[in-house]
Each structure stands twice: as structure tokens, then as C-alpha cells.
């Protein structure tokens, strides 16, 4: 793997069980540049968790390959925030130190804990939000180069979400950590991410830097049947009365009777998710 790529997949596919089972992930090929904060989005069951588990080295791919940093240099937080219920908060942090000799950064972990957790309380007595804080402390304390987070913010109230997202971004700013975060709620990630990976039905629908994706698309409004659309790839179009709204992938300057607006990330995602797979050329 080249030093400026943090995660790379080639024809990656996974099927749980035998040949008769459907693919959870299929034909995924992408390369995530190092230092990016990548949103992994898609509907429930799109294959987000599978992709993250593959990247974390917890699953063997059925087809293709995935290249990620070795265990020492990546951290992974599963969706259900697994922790040992009979350990205390202090024990759990010590576990991070014991299991990551030479890498563990106590100060970083402490910063995530931020006096919000009593070191003596048992993990099984923590609330969902407190668990999230603890697993994130464990993940960041390891000083990973690649941080894989599966639905990390689901259990948090807005304030804690903002604070922990801020900590994640600060870590990324300070250490150049590459972050992949999954969510089925885009707004949770918008603003924090500069790279997007959209999964649907186990396949990649969109992949690229957010800026490139946004500037590569345009939202057009104009009369139904207006000329000039054929020059571009129409991702999604809807006609209301005599007016047509279309999201296109630009293939050059837009000409014709169109009012052009920049799409938001949400416009982009919804348009792609509405279009059935393979309808795009």
C-alpha cells in the first residue's frame, strides 16, 4: 500500500454463509487517501458494518482484497460498543495500555474521558453515551493511523455528540489520523467529513472527495422537456407540472434554459439512492 493511501479495496466481496446466501458486499473497489475523514453512508443493511469489519481485520473477504494498516496501527469501534462489563472504567483504560504496549497515550484517552466517567464504576453500569465515550477513549488512546467507527454517535445527546466529534476532528488535525465513520444519518457527519463513500445493496454508489462530488454535480430547474440535458448524466429527475428538477453529473458546461444551483450533500445522496442500481451509465 502506498503511504498516501490509508485503505484500499479491490473487487472486495463478502457473503455470510454458503453460496446460496446473498452478497453482503460485492465488487467494491476504492482507495481512501490518508488524512481524510470519510463518511460511510447508506441505508440500513447496505454493507457498512461489513466493510468496516473487513477493514478492521475481523472478517475474511469472500472475494477480492482489502488493504488496511496492521492491527497495531488501526482502531475500530463496533456499532454495539463492545466492552468487558465486569471491568471498571479504570481497568478498561489500563487494558488499553496493557494491550497496546509502546503505543498507548494516556493523555489522549484522559481527554476523551474528560472527567465525565468515574474511574471506579463498572462498565456494565454505564449509560450508552458513557460507553461511547469509553470506547472512543480506548480507540484514540491507541494513537491509530486509521480509525474505523461504526455508527459512533448513535447513543449520544447533541451536546456530547458535538463535543466528541470535536475531539475526533482535533485528533485528526493533530495527528493526521484517517477516519472512516459510518452512519445512516448524513447530517450527523456533514461538515466533519471531506470524503464520501455511499453504499447501497452491498455496492459502492459514490466514492470521492466531498468537494469533487459536489462540484461534479449540479441541480437544474427548468421547463420539462428543456434541451441540453442529454449532454450530461442525469442521476435523478422529477417533473412537477411543467417544471423539471434534475440532478446531473456535469460533463461540461451546462447549456439550455436551466437555473443552476449547487447541490447539497444530502441532495446528492438522495438522488443516488432514489435511482435504482445500474440505471446510471
Amino acid at each position: 500500500m502506498t503511504p498516501d493511501t490509508a485503505l484500499r479495496a479491490e473487487g472486495l466481496g463478502t457473503r455470510y454463509g454458503g453460496r446460496s446466501r446473498p452478497w453482503a458486499l460485492r465488487d467494491c473497489t476504492f482507495a481512501l487517501p490518508a488524512g481524510r475523514v470519510c463518511a460511510l453512508v447508506g441505508p440500513n443493511g447496505a454493507g457498512k458494518s461489513t466493510l468496516l469489519a473487513l477493514a478492521a481485520g475481523l472478517l475474511r473477504p469472500t472475494a477480492g482484497t482489502i488493504e488496511a494498516p496492521e492491527r497495531e496501527r488501526l482502531a475500530y469501534v463496533a456499532q454495539d460498543k463492545p466492552l468487558y462489563p465486569r471491568l471498571t472504567v479504570a481497568d478498561t483504560l489500563r487494558m488499553g495500555r496493557e494491550l497496546n504496549p509502546g503505543r498507548w497515550d494516556e493523555a489522549t484517552a484522559e481527554r476523551v474521558i474528560a472527567d465525565e466517567l468515574d474511574p471506579g464504576s463498572l462498565v456494565r453500569e454505564l449509560s450508552g453515551g458513557q460507553r461511547t465515550r469509553l470506547v472512543l477513549a480506548l480507540a484514540l488512546g491507541k494513537r491509530p493511523e486509521l480509525l474505523l467507527l461504526d455508527e459512533p454517535m448513535a447513543d449520544l445527546d447533541p451536546l456530547a455528540r458535538h463535543q466528541l466529534m470535536g475531539l475526533l476532528m482535533a485528533d485528526a488535525a493533530e495527528h493526521g489520523t484517517t477516519v472512516v465513520m459510518s452512519s445512516h444519518i448524513l447530517t450527523e457527519l456533514e461538515g466533519a467529513c471531506d470524503h464520501l463513500l455511499l453504499l447501497q445493496n452491498g455496492r459502492i454508489r459514490l466514492d470521492g472527495s466531498v468537494d469533487d462530488l459536489l462540484s461534479g454535480h449540479a441541480l437544474l430547474t427548468g421547463p420539462a422537456g428543456g434541451a441540453g440535458l442529454t449532454a450530461h448524466t442525469v442521476v435523478d429527475s422529477r417533473t412537477t407540472g411543467r417544471q423539471l428538477t434534475a440532478l446531473i453529473r456535469r460533463e461540461g458546461p451546462v447549456e439550455g434554459p436551466w437555473e443552476i444551483t449547487d447541490p447539497t450533500l444530502e441532495d446528492l445522496l438522495l438522488a443516488h439512492l432514489r435511482t435504482p442500481e445500474g440505471a446510471r451509465s
Binding site: 475481523l58 492491527r71 475500530y76 463492545p82 466492552l83 504496549p101 503505543r103 480506548l138
Partner: peptide
């Protein structure tokens, strides 16, 4: 929880 232990070093 194996996913916790097995993604440490």
C-alpha cells in the same frame, strides 16, 4: 467483545 480485544495490538 472479541472485536474489542482483537483490534488492539
Amino acid at each position: 467483545t472479541y472485536r474489542l480485544s482483537l483490534t488492539q495490538s
